[in-house]
Design a protein around this nucleic acid. Structure first.
Lengths: 239, 239
DNA sequence: GCAGAAAGTTAGGACGTACTAACTTATTTC
DNA sequence: GAAATAAGTTAGTACGTCCTAACTTTCTGC
């Protein structure tokens, strides 16, 4: 028998390129780790033409990172999921580090992490995490995957879904738009704050809120991005 | 007159790709900022085929980063030099930061910085520098260019050139090979140490040295990479 | 000053990633 | 269930970076 000639591209150890890591992250985000992702949605998230996604997705499937059936969308394989989580961990540890160790505002960390995540070694990321005390969430409250690839997948309710009169602890702001983040910070709508829904206008009208003695109201679109963990109010009811 | 159609690619603001930054750094290193660099030497430093360098160098010349004459080598333009120094600053600040803020050993910083230098923003680099007290040199003693693009260009003498009996302060180790760096650290041959040449064997033989009460001897090749600032010895003579 | 060696270049091709235009498949609507 | 629409794909092309092979220019040593 002759020796294997073209070694299979499935060894799993070759470092992934930055675009590949971005595809995997996007697919992970769309399918929440396990679900399917549509070509168009991937294209939209990455700001690419759908045709480009078709091509790339096929290559990633050939490499064993995706399960792909033409016209049927795409799903991460186990190895693809692991790779996505590795990148996600890098991204979020870097965000946390920039915020805690280097004084970055929370609206600036995403952009910087978006580039560094592809360049930082695992060792660097681990040292960063250790230096700031092994954080469990990034500055927006998103959970940081562990080194061995597990994540807290708790699904929180958004402020848009909380009943009138109910209270919750803000756990996460699920968006990276700097302007939105600055606006929310101005309103004190940041992870860790206890918030109460005072009223909700119909037909997509504003939602009135209170945080401590601050009162404010925000639109429903914005509210969808604010995730809360319901807490019992004084009467013992839950949101 | 009609308006300019193909706007010149000389605007100077487009971010450079990682390979381009690497070429500029290599050319800077070879020509010490202003001198000419030969195709083969660039190729060797970047571990590329000379033919690849020929091609790339032409593109960089078209972009106004290099002055290039076929068969005659290459030289940085002012804008190329500025770009090279920007990258060099990033690289060295990152090295210093990894070492001082994250506990990296000096033999590990280069590799990590080699990737991060292409991903870190100027703001990140400036924050890193500020956090560790605006260092003037990296962990190997190499001077860090300032934000406005000036560098200390002092040329130091190497240990191989120091007279027998002369002393010097080690200012820099001009190599990035991790094994060499670990070896030198073992011998306490690191920036800041005062070192004296005890003897030098002829025909490329070993050089005997003392640092404090430590005695050691190293080969001449290694000695070339250790740069020193001569200091007057007890008799007032200089090396 | 010429032959051989060294240095450098061009030609032609590959790979990864993107694009637009044109086409095909799937889904929705009546 | 057929037509209209939405979603997805293929074909063909471009760009940046790299390669090898073959060629040309420059340098060196006699």
């Amino acid at each position: 028998m002759t020796a294997a000639r073209a070694q299979p591209r499935v060894s799993g150890a070759e470092p992934l390129t930055a675009p590949v890591e971005d595809y995997l992250k996007a697919i992970y985000a769309i399918g929440k780790g396990t679900g399917p992702a549509a070509t168009n949605e991937i294209a939209q998230r990455l700001a690419l033409a759908p045709a480009s996604v078709s091509g790339m997705v096929r290559r990633l499937a050939d490499q064993g990172l995706l399960a792909y059936e033409r016209y049927r969308g795409v799903r991460l394989t186990e190895s693809g999921r692991r790779a996505a989580l590795r990148t996600l961990r890098r991204h979020r540890v870097i965000e946390a580090y920039l915020s805690k160790a280097l004084g970055y505002q929370w609206d600036r960390v995403h952009e910087e992490a978006e580039r560094l995540e592809h360049a930082a070694s695992d060792e660097l990321v681990d040292r960063m995490a250790a230096t700031i005390g092994e954080p469990e969430v990034d500055p927006h409250g998103a959970p940081i995957p562990t080194k061995d690839g597990s994540v807290d997948e708790t699904e929180y309710r958004s402020l848009a879904d909380l009943d009138v009169g109910a209270s919750g602890m803000i756990v996460r702001v699920a968006d990276e738009d700097p302007e939105m983040l600055r606006y929310l910070a101005e309103l004190s709508v940041v992870p860790g704050k206890r918030i109460t829904v005072k009223s909700r206008a119909p037909y997509g009208g504003p939602i009135s809120l209170s945080i401590g003695r601050h009162e404010m109201s925000i639109g429903p679109t914005l509210a969808t991005h604010v995730l809360v963990s319901p807490v019992a109010d004084r009467a013992g009811k839950r949101g």
